[in-house]
């Protein structure tokens, strides 16, 4: 078995009486897309929060490249090589598209306290930002204000910022959310290629995308992983069909 790039061990998180994450151990191996699916309220966002560092688990560990990062804040995990995208786009709306991508590149290169040289004349930062925009197909929109982008374009920019980090692992929280059929299909194709660069932990509601992309799927219900396996195994699993997939398949 390939060594896990990203791994959780026995994560637990409760909000009052609600056990939002209940003994979750999952792993993400090099080159794969591991999808997390589950009904609303299954604890997917809580899990993402603990992996990215925004939430502190009550128990358990998060390992990145075999190193325990459970105690590290969000920014330290990002520097350690974890890039996340947000379910609701988190972009600087007043800034241009290029500036948003440049922020990612700046984060990747570090040294954010330069106050004299214009950041966009820094060729290392600019090149990386533009390369990421080109890959998601937003290079022509680079001078636009982010607020003027369509919803779909914002989702693309969200992915572009993660690309500028050149991370060891991606954690994507519903990247397809709100995209039309065509947009979903395009992003699905893009993520398919992206996995060779760094593995993706994908939380997604769009079952077509999940079944098309995932090497492995874990099903989360009431904070617990009730099943984990390949697409075929998950499709056949009676517990999953009862709890979640219903008559869809």
């Amino acid at each position: 078995m390939a060594k896990a790039v990203l791994e959780t061990k026995g994560l637990r998180k409760a909000f009052g009486a609600l056990q939002a994450t209940d003994d979750v151990s999952i792993s993400l191996r090099a080159g794969e897309i591991h999808a997390i699916i589950g009904p609303n309220g299954a604890g997917k966002s809580t899990l993402i929060g603990q992996i990215s560092g925004a939430l502190t688990p009550d128990a358990g560990q998060v390992l990145l490249g075999g190193k325990d990062v459970t105690g590290l804040p969000v920014q330290a995990r990002a520097r350690a090589g974890l890039a996340r995208t947000f379910q609701i786009s988190q972009l600087a709306m007043e800034d241009t598209v290029l500036q948003n991508a440049a922020l990612g590149a700046l984060g990747a290169f570090g040294r954010p306290f330069g106050m004299v040289r214009p950041v966009l004349r820094d060729t290392a930062i600019r090149d990386r930002a533009e390369a990421a925009l080109e890959r998601v197909g937003l290079l022509d929109q680079r001078a636009m204000r982010t607020a003027e982008l369509s919803h779909g374009q914002r989702r693309q920019l969200e992915v572009a910022v993660a690309l500028t980090l050149e991370p060891r692992a991606f954690v994507m929280d519903e990247p397809m959310a709100g995209l039309g059929t065509e947009g979903s299909a395009r992003l699905t194709g893009f993520l398919d290629e992206l996995r060779s660069q760094a593995p993706i932990l994908l939380v997604e509601h769009d079952m077509d995308a999940v079944f098309a992309l995932a090497d492995r799927i874990s099903v989360l219900v009431y904070g617990r992983v009730i099943a984990s396996g390949t697409v075929e195994e998950i499709r056949r699993d009676p517990a999953v069909r009862e709890a979640y997939l219903g008559d869809e398949t």
Binding site: A78, F86, Q90, G114, P118, V119
Partner: peptide, 22 residues
């Protein structure tokens, strides 16, 4: 500058700024 870009983003979307490692 670099600092201006990061500070301006920290005002608008602090979550994003953390997520890129700053």
């Amino acid at each position: 500058s670099r600092f201006g870009l990061a500070l301006n983003a920290a005002r608008q979307v602090p979550e994003r700024v953390r997520a890129v490692g700053l």
